[in-house]
Design a protein around this nucleic acid. Structure first.
Length: 583
RNA sequence: GCCCUGGUAGCUCAGUUGGAUAGAGCGACCGCCUCCUAAGCGGUAGGUCACAGGUUCGACUCCUGUUCAGGGCACCA
């Protein structure tokens, strides 16, 4: 399906070529929706940019183009304004016809990728022996949206949950459990208990050199496959994984157990990975550790900063695992692209990792490597979001709290709802609000967590979008009209609010591509919010079911509403957000 | 010290490859329900786009410098 922008572009480029020659056949005519409806519907900004090259005044170029332009079926007015803007006014008949095309396009103008890629997305990655907390929310939610959008575009998406289940901290925790005389019976412990032990073991690790030493040996035992150590470790993994899966299910994200590919998965590959680096002459020994030096990385004393792949005690660490993971993902999973969704603090680690795997040749230049960093979640005091007591906010508590608050709001706004329905709705709405609050902020920035704002139901929130959807369904319910029955209706725009809504609907595919190009889900949020706002304005201005509305106009408005609902739902679905039937 | 991110209305945030008068929501103020769900809509007020230069016909956007905030910089992840 051709977009309106590309259609306009073709006409304008044709005019440019006719006037100034074939050299301009690839020119971008800089078409965009107008910033203000008083300037028409679309504007072309090329006259200004051509002025220097052609050594003519922008307005003269614009005038010449105007003479040459021939698209009477598309525009009913074209005018020149300001320094040389070309303002295009679309004909209603053209808009009507394009609406019909859009309404019958299964993907609303979003075309599936002609040459699909295999995209590995590395996200969520909670740590074994710890409950999931607020810090895991962004990676999980953003990663879920990324997985959904690439899948929608027709790519093969391989989700990878690179859980932290390997390394120094497990030696520490297991040694602590052994010290405490761990028995099978202790395996009744909750994950919260385990996490408490984890914290205790950390304290001991930092304060007791003898314990520290034993903990390090325990890591070696773990990594070399000692039976008893593995038994305890398996227990920790089992408990933790179960907890993670429960949370994922509740969050409604795509991650399942089959996506688990934790650090330990790479354990058998680590020695080989390091050996291969040695074979490629990339390794150096520095202070007893095996390291890679990469161009452009310096430490605080301006000396080359190493990437440590093997510690002086012989143990491997996250760098080693990440190197092995890239190798595996390229060679075995056939990745064309790998996307890491982690917080921004790891930027340097990934910069080094990417440089190293390029140098080692594990990721060819054909493979695209992306770090998709995100900022922290902050409290009202602009410091990292904590509980009132100053502790880490558990994800489960966050979800419970959101649900409770949504229920209170629902009771206030719609007291007639039966309790069971209210509880169900509270689940969906609170989850939507939580995810949307996260996704609608530019991911690179820190964002301030605010309960009242995310559930505020107006402004750029999930409930506002869900409400627009509910309103549309409600029209059809009230009129006892089947939505499918309006899909073939003729569009007949008769009010500016309808046209404004229509123009926004046309931009859905552009919004999707904007998200993909820059890996910025908030662009889709902004789009959907603007769409919902335009729908609400249309709804106020344009009666639909009322008797005063002529039949053909009513049909057109119903079709417009239905299309709007379908696009809202589709967009929210990409974000991993559910719609509701009523609220 | 070096590097990476940010700084837009009182608050929370958008702002597309540089385009016209920088936009929302909240809060404040003024309106709109005998009418498809007022969880809504319309309007008013509120800005030195951190600061200073530069490039450009045109800069919130690009470049340089300054400043403030957050983060990273060797065996944790």
């Amino acid at each position: 399906m051709k977009t309106i922008k590309s259609e306009l572009s073709e006409h304008i480029v044709a005019a440019v070529v006719k006037l100034y020659g074939d050299d301009y056949c690839d020119l971008d005519p800089l078409i965009q929706p107008t910033t203000n409806s008083e300037f028409g519907d679309y504007q072309a900004n090329l006259a200004m940019s051509l002025a220097k090259k052609l050594e003519q005044k922008p307005r003269e170029i614009a005038h010449a183009l105007l003479e040459e332009l021939d698209m009477p079926s598309i525009c009913d007015k074209i005018e020149i304004a300001g320094p040389g803007f070309i303002n295009l006014y679309l004909k209603n008949t053209f808009v009507n016809q394009r609406l019909e095309t859009l309404a019958n396009s299964p993907e609303f103008g979003v075309t599936r990728e002609f040459s699909p890629e295999t995209i590995v997305i590395d996200y969520s990655a909670p740590n074994i022996a710890k409950e999931m907390h607020v810090g895991h929310l962004r990676s999980t939610v953003i990663g879920d949206a990324a997985a959904r959008i690439f899948t929608k575009l027709g790519h093969k998406v391989i989700r990878q949950n690179h859980m932290g289940d390997w390394g120094t901290q497990f030696g520490m925790l297991i040694e602590f459990l052994v010290d405490g005389g761990w028995t099978e019976q202790d395996s009744q412990d909750s994950l919260a208990d385990i996490e408490q032990r984890y914290r205790d073991s950390k304290l001991k690790f930092d304060s007791d050199p003898e314990f520290n030493q034993r903990a390090r040996q325990r890591v070696v035992a773990l990594q070399s496959g000692d039976d008893y150590t593995l038994k305890l470790w398996n227990y920790l993994v089992r408990e933790s994984t179960q907890h993670f899966m429960e949370i994922y299910q509740r969050l409604g994200v795509l991650l399942t157990e089959t996506d688990n590919c934790p650090e330990s998965f790479y354990n058998p590959m680590l020695a080989g990975t390091v050996q291969e680096l040695a074979d490629k002459s990339m390794l150096e020994t520095s202070d007893g550790a095996e390291v890679i030096f990469l161009d452009g990385f310096k430490d605080r004393d301006e000396r080359p900063l190493p990437m440590i792949v093997r510690k002086s005690d012989g143990g491997y660490l996250y760098s080693t695992t990440d190197l092995a993971a890239v190798r595996y993902r390229c060679a075995d999973l056939g990745a064309n692209r790998i996307i890491y969704i982690t917080d921004a603090r790891q930027a340097q680690h990934f910069a080094m990792l990417f440089a190293a795997v390029r140098k080692a040749g594990w990721a060819s230049t054909e493979v695209r490597l992306d770090h998709m960093p995100f900022g922290s979640v902050l409290g009202a005091d602009r410091k990292p979001f904590k509980t009132r007591e100053g502790g880490t906010v558990r994800l489960i508590d966050l979800l419970d709290e959101a649900e409770k608050r949504a229920e209170v709001v629902l009771q206030l706004k719609n007291p007639e709802l039966p309790v069971s329905e209210r509880k169900e709705l509270a689940k969906t709405i609170s989850l939507a609000a939580l995810k949307y609050a996260d996704l609608s902020n530019d991911r690179i920035k820190d964002y301030v967590f605010d309960w009242d704002r995310m559930l505020a139901l107006d402004g750029n929130t999930a409930p506002y979008l869900q409400n627009a959807y509910v309103r549309i369904l409600s029209i059809f319910r009230k009129g006892e009209i089947d939505r499918g029955s309006v899909r073939s209706a003729k569009f007949e725009l008769s009010h500016p609010a309808e046209k404004a809504l229509a123009l926004k609907l046309f931009q859905y595919s552009a919004a999707i591509y904007a998200v993909v190009d820059r890996l910025e889900p908030h662009r889709l949020c902004t789009y959907l919010y603007e769409l919902a706002a335009l729908f609400h304005a249309f709804y106020e201005a344009c009666p639909i079911l009322k008797e005063e509305t002529p039949e053909s106009i009513r049909k057109s408005r119903l079709a417009l509403s239905d299309l709007c609902a379908r696009i809202l739902k589709d967009g929210l679905d990409i974000l991993g957000i559910e719609t509701v039937e009523r609220m």
